[in-house]
């Protein structure tokens, strides 16, 4: 099932949760909606599920108007952030719920329902918990039951709201791999919301980066990491060095110093320069774009993280490979291997 969202706007009072969002999701994709809290990603997910309604815009599934249907008719599997398991039902009954509430005409008989629930519990590897109540499960187990429950209705689309948000670090990592392989197995168009970049980059086929109700970039995990489209994406994903620069007469200036960096095609005016920490190459004084003095060095396994005071007064942190050891007091030159400059909004 493909999903298409056009020009979606949603306000809560004066707060714009979604500010003109366009998005196409292809059949069978595993898409991540990534952004800080308040970026509108959960609102977008809930609108696709039919749990919220936009002020304007369109949502269609396979070209069919989805807003004409309520959540009940959309056949969308939704996994809630806090799972929303029915606390008075056993795990088995939770998973069976969607099958039991079907209209009588198409409702399956008890034997079929039991077999289907068993199958789903096997799929999430928790068949031994069938008679427990949600309060007796761990967070990771609840998460998987919530997923099994959503899959029971054979959803056309699977939506997950911060699927790993409430879990501890170790369980998160396990579940990530598991979700990826599960998606591979069932191959349902899936969207999940997360504020954790590592999660988005590791699990999804495509990542949608959102901020302040707008989509900043859509692309493969490599795209958004390697070629950030906006200043926001660059600073939100990965560790970045960020310096305020001025573009004038084809020259990039940091403070009053011109930098030996190409300014081709850049609009004149106040801008920001972004460089990944590991893209700053260390050389002897006079060899690079920046000059500075090492203030402090700490070693992290294969890299040494150095705090460098630039001659312009700013202090930045760089990651240099081990081998040529840096020491506090060294004067060095820094050359960005790759960098991006974005005009200030």
């Amino acid at each position: 099932m493909s999903i298409e969202v056009r020009n979606l706007v949603k306000k809560f009072g004066s707060f714009k949760a979604l500010d003109g969002v366009d998005l196409k999701v292809n059949d069978g994709e595993l898409l991540a909606l990534l952004g800080p809290s308040g970026s509108g990603k959960t609102t977008l997910l809930r609108i696709i599920a039919g749990l919220d309604w936009p002020d304007s815009g369109e949502v269609s599934f396979n070209g069919e108007d989805a807003l004409a249907q309520g959540a009940r008719e959309r056949h969308v599997g939704f996994v809630f952030q806090h799972y929303a398991l029915f606390r008075h039902m056993t795990v088995f009954e939770n998973v069976a719920f969607g099958l039991r509430v079907q209209p009588r005409a198409i409702r399956k008989d008890e034997v079929t329902i039991r077999a289907r629930v068993k199958e789903l519990l096997d799929l999430v590897q928790l068949d031994w918990l069938a008679d427990r109540y949600p309060s007796q499960l761990s967070g990771g187990q609840r998460q998987r039951i919530a997923l099994a429950r959503a899959l029971a209705i054979e959803p056309r689309i699977l939506l997950l709201d911060e699927p790993f948000g409430a879990l501890d670090a170790k369980v998160r990592k396990e579940l990530r791999k598991w979700l990826r392989s599960l998606h591979h197995e069932i191959n349902v168009t899936s969207i999940f919301v997360t504020h954790d970049q590592e999660e988005a980059l590791e699990v999804a086929n495509r990542v949608v980066v959102m901020d302040k109700g707008k989509i900043e970039q859509i692309g493969s995990p490599d795209d958004v990491y390697e070629s950030p489209a906006t200043a926001f994406v660059h600073s939100f994903i990965g560790e970045s060095i960020e310096l305020p620069v001025l573009i004038a007469d084809g020259v990039v200036r940091l403070g009053d110093r011109p930098l030996r960096l190409a300014a081709d095609g850049l609009a004149p005016g106040a801008s920001r320069l972004f460089v990944r920490r590991h893209d700053m190459l260390v050389g002897p004084p006079g060899s690079g774009a920046f000059e500075g003095a090492v203030q402090h060095v700490r070693n992290f396994g294969p890299v040494q993280r150095a705090e460098v005071a630039l001659s312009g007064g700013q202090t930045i942190e760089i990651d240099a490979p081990r081998g040529r050891e840096l020491r506090a007091g060294d004067t060095i030159s820094l050359e960005p291997r790759r960098y991006r400059i974005f005009a200030d909004a």
């Binding site: 039919g50 919220d52 309604w53 936009p54 108007d65 807003l67 004409a68 309520g70």
Partner: peptide, 13 residues
């Protein structure tokens, strides 16, 4: 847009 106006609330009733 009429579909949106008609169904602004998720839960029925």
């Amino acid at each position: 847009m009429s579909a949106i106006a008609a169904r602004r609330r998720t839960l029925p009733g």
